[in-house]
Amino acid sequence: MFLEIQYINKSFGKEQIVKDLNFSLAPHKTLSILGKSGCGKTSMLKIIGGLLKADSGNIILDGNDISELEAEKRNIVYLYQEDLLFPHLNVFENIAFGLRIKKQKEAHIQSKVKEMLELLELEDQGQKMPHQLSGGQRQRVSFGRAIIINPALLLLDEPFGSLDAGTRQRMQQLFKDIAHKFKITSLFVTHDLKEAILMGDEIAFMQSGKLKLYKNKEEFIADPSTGVQNEIGFWENLIPKGQNII
């Protein structure tokens, strides 16, 4: 498999945050992970991204053990719920950031960033500063900045959490398109049931540090702990009343 996570554990003091994390993911696939806040999902992502050291376990990416590698050498980008755009750089320079770090040629940077701006429908926004953008635009810049350096793996931590419902829906579609176009492999963490089902090729559920993978969406839906059944029940209870009204 492209990404293999083997027996990762992490504790803060006495509290075990991640327990025996074990899963694998094929290339160009998105694994969506449903979990409430505090379930250990952020720690898990940070361990995979190299921002947090695991107590034990291995991370294999494309056949190489990267467990001991520093974050900047892993080629894994971690995206926060906050867009974290650099406030002192304009949109163009924000997106170009990773390329400049890698000291790529100016002409190459210019053409790649322009291409990315078009793709994100931000052609006219290149010279704007982050504070002049809307929430959705900022999140798109944040995506562009990550994807442009061609990461082997993208980690998304509630990326649409702070957006309103409409923007959120458009961003979900945009992400799916981009992920497909750039053949991105990603882990997509969310606390939103619908988003989890919608975004993932594979699906998993995380609760108090344990991750459970499902063979398919049907199995996920059937599992009462995910809350899908509860949700279905809620709507079903509503429908008869609605019919009465009609």
């Binding site: 921002l51 520093e70 974050a71 900047e72 894994i76 974290l84 650099f86 990773g98 990550a146 350096i149």
Partner: peptide, 28 residues
């Protein structure tokens, strides 16, 4: 917290400590 996240972001984008200082922290 926010500065820490920003530094982490720089390192996942491939920047080392020096570039996080010169390109992000000092300008910020």
């Amino acid at each position: 917290e926010k500065t820490k996240n920003m530094e982490d972001l720089v390192s996942t984008l491939g920047g080392n400590r020096l570039s996080s200082f010169t390109k992000v922290l000092l300008p910020l």
